[in-house]
Deep mutational scan, measured.
Amino acid sequence: MALNTPQITPTKKITVRAIGEELPRGDYQRCPQCDMLFSLPEINSHQSAYCPRCQAKIRDGRDWSLTRLAAMAFTMLLLMPFAWGEPLLHIWLLGIRIDANVMQGIWQMTKQGDAITGSMVFFCVIGAPLILVTSIAYLWFGNRLGMNLRPVLLMLERLKEWVMLDIYLVGIGVASIKVQDYAHIQAGVGLFSFVALVILTTVTLSHLNVEELWERFYPQRPATRRDEKLRVCLGCHFTGYPDQRGRCPRCHIPLRLRRRHSLQKCWAALLASIVLLLPANLLPISIIYLNGGRQEDTILSGIMSLASSNIAVAGIVFIASILVPFTKVIVMFTLLLSIHFKCQQGLRTRILLLRMVTWIGRWSMLDLFVISLTMSLINRDQILAFTMGPAAFYFGAAVILTILAVEWLDSRLLWDAHESGNARFDD
């Protein structure tokens, strides 16, 4: 018995066209964080690309023209004298008006014999932002004059995390709450300039795509075929072959399989920071003279006294001054041990922890910024005066060393310790 099946006739004509040209192939790229070699397709503007294995951002879609970056830099340069030299806060102490600005706080630190601690604050609040705007201006002028731009481009990517104007702005709020127990506070004209400078700096850093600047100024022929001998440069993120001198053909720094002496430098910085954190938390970090009496505060006791007036601000200072430094030390110690013992479990967790400490590390400088600003506000000789204690130097040095330890660690070593050939990683 035959089955009668109805015929289905399409209502619209289906047209099949042959592909007349070869589909576009992607360029081969190595991930600078996990060293995976993959094919990167062509990316349009405002599109980002991520590593298929570790999800690290390979290409950032946010990109401004150099002219727009230069305009932002010149605007920031105009704001800087007002943000640093004009009063941020006014207080009335014992019937006398006192003005506080950024430069005055750094000068008070240096004047009291601790120039190293003052230079830490100076670099993060004044030096690094000033280098940022002058570097962008150098790129703008240098591109037109045919100057060598490689050193500036190499420095810009590392400079971003040292620009800490946003953290200093939080420190202004913390210092205001600490001082309000002794005097009446009012915002100064410099505060508005400083807030504007923070906003412009944040926007500029978020749109400063150094890798795209490398592509514009020093374009290189990408690798179009897969080759395990391809290496990625950690300076400019170019994937290719080393030249005859073993250097990256684009930025001219040595092109090595792994960062040289990464573990040794990381261990040295980490152990030194552990040693410095002990006096930083045991010795007094601030000293207040009130009517001839002397009151010393460690980091913890200062947080407890701050909690009596504002528990939320005390929580912020606790996280930045105690929780973050010790968390960074514990995480980095764990990561280094996992590399030495070739741990194969929990790779995803370790990668996330490394990215976390990379982002939060700079916030530990908050305590030094609060001390710097408070020193310029309260300084009335023996009637009422505020000065920093010996722990300030140890704390600042420990924070900087932990930042350097994270920067010096080559994250690809975590993958080397893991089993080879993993296309995915999980716990």
Rank of each mutant, 00 (worst) to 15 (best):
N4E: 11
V16P: 15
E21F: 12
E22A: 09
R25H: 10
Y28I: 13
R30H: 09
P32F: 12
P32M: 11
D35K: 00
D35N: 13
L37M: 15
L37Y: 12
S39G: 14
L40Y: 10
H46M: 11
Q55R: 09
I58A: 11
D60Y: 10
D60E: 10
S65Y: 08
E86L: 02
E86K: 13
E86G: 04
L88R: 01
L93S: 02
I106L: 04
W107A: 15
A115T: 15
A115K: 02
G118D: 03
S119V: 01
M120V: 04
F122D: 04
P129L: 05
L132K: 03
Y138E: 01
L139Q: 02
W140I: 15
L145W: 11
G146C: 04
L149I: 06
P151W: 02
P151E: 02
V152R: 00
V152N: 03
L154T: 06
L156Q: 14
E161Y: 05
E161G: 15
E161H: 12
D166S: 15
V174Y: 00
S176K: 02
K178A: 00
Q180V: 13
Y182F: 11
A183S: 10
V189D: 07
L191D: 03
F192N: 04
F192M: 10
T204L: 08
E211S: 10
T224L: 09
R225E: 13
D227C: 09
R231E: 03
R231C: 05
V232D: 03
G235Y: 03
F238W: 06
F238I: 04
G240L: 10
P242M: 10
L257N: 10
W267C: 14
A268T: 04
A269T: 04
L270E: 05
L270Q: 07
L276G: 10
L277M: 07
L283K: 06
P284F: 05
S286C: 06
I287K: 08
L290F: 04
N291M: 08
G293F: 07
G302T: 02
G302C: 03
I303N: 08
L306I: 12
V317R: 00
A320P: 01
S321M: 02
F326D: 04
K328R: 00
V331H: 09
M332H: 10
S338M: 14
S338P: 14
F341Y: 11
C343N: 14
Q344A: 13
R348W: 11
I360C: 05
W363L: 03
D367N: 00
I371F: 08
L373Q: 10
I378P: 00
Q382R: 08
I383W: 15
T387V: 12
F393Q: 14
F393A: 10
F395W: 06
A397C: 05
A397M: 05
A397R: 00
A398C: 13
I403D: 01
A405Y: 10
L409A: 10
H418T: 07
H418Q: 08
F425A: 15
D426P: 13
